[in-house]
């Protein structure tokens, strides 16, 4: 059974949670209310999602005042450990800052349950009074995972968090999507040999604002320094197109070295962005992009819901597969039918 079907079920009764209390709670920074609102966003139920949407809409005036930082890197590169060291470093310099962390854990493909263990790796950060860590099961792409992450960000901003860190899954399309919804995108890399560097996803490098070579301790230190040179060259070559050439930094989150520099460099980048007004432009585009995607997402869902009344969706797909129907013509038919319905 596929759980995405559950969103079709209609609600019997509204959630017990008090709507106004939740809004007030979030604005006051209540952990409980923020947590519950995020759960609403993650719900499989249509009625929950509608409530979440209204909530967010009311909270919009209080959003936008944070730095959104995406952190990517392959599984095992030490993202969580890095975030722990990084978060603690920020709090050392700026103890009044409130930090929220969103981590995305893989769901078991077969049955859909997840084991979410990220707080384990952010042991001492997650204990901190000013820190809110929320691990989310990925639910795969079709759940609109990235869109939910964006909206979770907004909720956290409304609750007064100044810095929002999003840790990606480390594989797949979601990397790009997260890269396109943050103010700064950090790539964590592990010292590796030349061959392994070849295999790095070029697309990701283009989104990156800061590259950190992590685990530069012990035996890997030398390798790390070599890698730094290579990356610097890569960025240098493509720097003409961009106004910002991403710095390449060495760090060891285990030894807690170099992590402070990352924060300083990141702030430099963000200030640079603000000065050039790129920051604002990026955000505007991201909001519009989110709107576009939501529109497509909702439209798609509508079409599927109506499919029984319309010309069978499956039948159309079958025709397209067999080359009997031109895809653009097919889309036209479906759209026209939808307008009529």
């Amino acid at each position: 059974m596929c759980f995405t079907n559950f969103r079709c079920f209609k609600s019997k009764k509204l959630k017990l949670m008090n709507y106004n209390e939740t809004i007030e709670g979030i604005l006051k920074g209540s952990r409980k209310h923020l947590a519950k609102a995020i759960s609403l966003l993650e719900s499989y139920r249509e009625d929950d999602l509608l409530i979440a949407q209204n909530l967010l809409d009311e909270l919009m005036p209080s959003t936008g005042k944070s730095y959104r930082i995406g952190i990517t890197g392959i599984p095992g590169v030490g993202k969580s450990t890095f975030i722990e060291a990084f978060g603690e470093e920020i709090l050392k310099f700026e103890p009044k800052k409130k930090i929220a962390v969103i981590t995305i854990d893989p769901s078991s493909p077969k049955r859909g349950g997840s084991i979410l263990g990220d707080k384990v790796r952010m042991n001492s950060l997650s204990r901190h009074e000013n820190v809110f860590v929320r691990p989310s099961p990925s639910k795969g792409e079709q759940g609109g995972g990235a869109l939910k992450t964006y909206e979770t960000c907004l909720l956290m901003e409304a609750a007064g968090y100044d810095i929002i860190i999003i840790e990606t899954l480390g594989v797949g399309q979601s990397e790009y999507k997260v890269g396109q919804m943050v103010d700064a995108f950090l790539l964590l890399h592990m010292p590796a040999t030349g061959d392994e560097l070849q295999g790095m996803k070029r697309g990701i490098l283009e989104l990156v604002d800061l590259l950190i070579i992590n685990k530069c301790d012990g035996k890997l230190e030398h390798e790390g320094k070599l890698n730094k040179k290579i990356f610097e060259q890569v960025f240098h070559l493509s720097a003409t197109k961009k106004k910002w050439s991403p710095p390449v930094l060495l760090a060891s989150s285990k030894e807690k070295e170099g992590v402070g520099v990352v924060w300083q460099e990141l702030k430099k980048f963000l200030l640079h962005q603000k000065k050039t007004r790129d920051f604002q432009k990026k955000r505007e585009n991201q909001a519009l992009e989110c709107f576009n995607q939501q529109l497509i997402f909702k439209l798609n869902k509508k079409i599927r819901e109506k499919e029984t009344k319309l010309l069978s969706y499956e039948a159309i797909q079958e025709k397209i597969k067999n080359g009997l129907l031109c895809p653009s013509k097919a889309a036209q038919i479906v759209l026209e039918n939808l307008m009529k319905a």
């Binding site: 049955r111 349950g113 997840s114 084991i115 979410l116 263990g117 707080k119 384990v120 997650s126 099961p137």
Partner: peptide, 15 residues
């Protein structure tokens, strides 16, 4: 934790 996740629960493991 493993058993429940295999049944379909979302499981958070604490440190």
């Amino acid at each position: 934790a493993t058993g429940l996740a295999d049944i379909g629960f979302d499981i958070d493991i604490g440190p």
